[in-house]
Design a binder for these strands. Sequence first.
DNA 1: GCCTATTATGTAAAGACTTTTCGTAAACTC
DNA 2: GAGTTTACGAAAAGTCTTTACATAATAGGC
Lengths: 419, 419
Amino acid sequence: MQEERPAGTPVLRRMNRAAVLDAVRRRAPEPVRLAELTRLTELTRPTVAQAVEDLLAAGWLRQHAPRPGGGRATVGRPATRFSLNGRAAPVLGLDVGPHTVTAGIADLAGERLAVIRRAVSRRGARHLLEAVDEATGAALATAGLAAEQITAVTAATPGIVEVTTGRVLFAPSVPGWSEIDLAGRLRARFRCAVTVENDANLAALAAAHQRTGAGTLLAVQWGERLGAGVVIDGRLHRGAGQAGEIGFIRPNAHLPDAHLPDAHLPDAHLPDAHLPDAAGDGRGPLERAIGAEAIVDLARRRAAEHPESGLARATDAAAVFAAAAGGDPIAAEVVDRVAAVFAEAVAPVVLVLSPHAIVIGGGIARAGAVLLEAIARHLEDLPLTPPSVELSELAEGTVLTGAIQMALDEVWRNTLTVC
Amino acid sequence: MQEERPAGTPVLRRMNRAAVLDAVRRRAPEPVRLAELTRLTELTRPTVAQAVEDLLAAGWLRQHAPRPGGGRATVGRPATRFSLNGRAAPVLGLDVGPHTVTAGIADLAGERLAVIRRAVSRRGARHLLEAVDEATGAALATAGLAAEQITAVTAATPGIVEVTTGRVLFAPSVPGWSEIDLAGRLRARFRCAVTVENDANLAALAAAHQRTGAGTLLAVQWGERLGAGVVIDGRLHRGAGQAGEIGFIRPNAHLPDAHLPDAHLPDAHLPDAHLPDAAGDGRGPLERAIGAEAIVDLARRRAAEHPESGLARATDAAAVFAAAAGGDPIAAEVVDRVAAVFAEAVAPVVLVLSPHAIVIGGGIARAGAVLLEAIARHLEDLPLTPPSVELSELAEGTVLTGAIQMALDEVWRNTLTVC
DNA sequence: GCCTATTATGTAAAGACTTTTCGTAAACTC
DNA sequence: GAGTTTACGAAAAGTCTTTACATAATAGGC
């Protein structure tokens, strides 16, 4: 219950401004009439008029000329309509991946003004940083904006992020990345709030915004690596800092319904596999067991034992899932095994968190219904209303969408209290 | 960001009243001077004076006579001091256990006006309900209050609770309990907000309130049964309804550092053990593996193999932990095994939630540091700042404290918006 | 083509708070 | 006992919302 610091009558005016702006935002992108605002805000018309006047002067709203017959009303004097002036507060979202950097600029209403994608030529922190600068500059140029006009920045990066400072503590996929102060660089360039956040977390946020009404959401990012984000009532859960590190769950070696020898889980129970700073690629046990690569591996081995199956030709995880959907029994067995391991691994989380839904995104998300059904089936044993297991409907730009979303949230949080 | 519905100037007055009352509450139980309130609320003195006058008239505050030399100031005219009038809104907390019912009445400041404990003579829902009525009546009589004066009621019950309706969906420890509409009965007797909540959840809430500043907390209630509550930023996490069912986690059969044969985990991997409505006592796999009873069992078996150990005489879990603390190697092995199973079971939760602390309460809480150290040691492998593992400092009345706490929270939430 | 119903907008007076300012009261120290 | 410090109370001023009334613009009917 965050108590607003109350004061004199001016705060009243501020509150009413905020209420009106919020009402316009909820109605966006539809332009809204004055009378409608009085109904939405439960304020009187003169008050709303006053607030609208202030907001127009401050540049938050745009005024539409009253066109006869333009509004909803078919009779009477046509109303002037107002809508958000998106350009009042454009935001920047960044998706910094090991191989690609995407910069997106959106306006207040969420409309994309520019999306620029840059491949990273060579691996390494320095080249990545260059790509970030380049993509950012290009996006600003495309949108026709200067850096000073940006009102919030959110950058998505792989690895473990200390959100309060913006430092990347641990990023195995980009050598040297944790030595770079990305947040500091961005703060120097943009004079506004800068947030650096884990990419899986931002994907989770995007999924939660898209799937409206999901109180508690576990959003899994499943590709070569495995990450997860927890969204509770529209807000990202961070915990002590590194929430969502699902890839380091140690899979259960004994599965009653698994028909495959568990030797296929490489190194899953070596204790030192848990240490992030251990040698190797920094992947966790669950990633090694059912990451995209491991799935292909598993399929290949099974195919070698059963030459009649067409699985041997599978070069990526999608092919394995396609084969399973096509009726290949060996592929189906592999999918079931993968689903079982996943379900068993997240079962404790599901039991404690009781999420309304589990949304699966990332490279694996192209798997389709086969995987979902298998996972849901394996979760059915748990003594609770099972969460609905879904695929993320967001394609490529999930992480960028989440970054932009968080930046917009930041702007609104600030705006609605300050105006 | 819960937007207050803004309106005319009267809301300003209401907000200021709320701010003043909140300031007094934060200062409780110390009586507070008017000047101090102006500093705390950042309002002007006349405004605070007005609000205080209103609150006095409404009965929320009590006025203390100005005693010379009584205040903190050593010079100047002595100030009249104000404090919460607890009797303005007493609340009722209930801890309904299978064998005992405790009713507690507390005032606004959290001071206990009455705590009545009643043993339940015979097992069964009907007798339990009688005990509830009896304890409640006795508590009201002791506090000298009528039912109409109670402003919020929270009841703790074992089992799975649908909080929105207050129905108990599943309660294996009390036959017939899920057919009883406890919330309905309480609502008929008390004309105020009535909440029914799982007991482990309320214990978690109590732990969180006691351990101030814990952003994310996993509070485990560990006795014959195992339950857990998740508290995030002081609020109980409920998820889709049955969050915290830690007892139904399926323990990992393979533990690299376990030196005991895993045959000691009875039925842990029978799939139908997961179903709550399955035959038996409704206990989950983890409860059967490391519940208080299972710990004693395990110790007895190991003692039989090693007659030189004094463990054979252990009749309860506390004795096992005491022996381990005393240096008995067999007992230490058992404790380590239990800790390993627990750590392995909650590891996924810790990874996803990244709690600041894990607080262990319940019967096992008397175990002491031996268990904590072992659990912390087993959690160290995880790639994150490990949560601090602690024992709950609250003794017997944890659940009752949580129930009262939640009732008080309810009162404050209502009060601070309505006054 | 004019009139009426309907909806939207603008303006002025009234009411409700908070804030500012000033004066008064009560206790402690030197 | 004078001076200082702190607390309390009341009146005037300023800001904002509300209420009430007057005006403007359009569609449809006669």
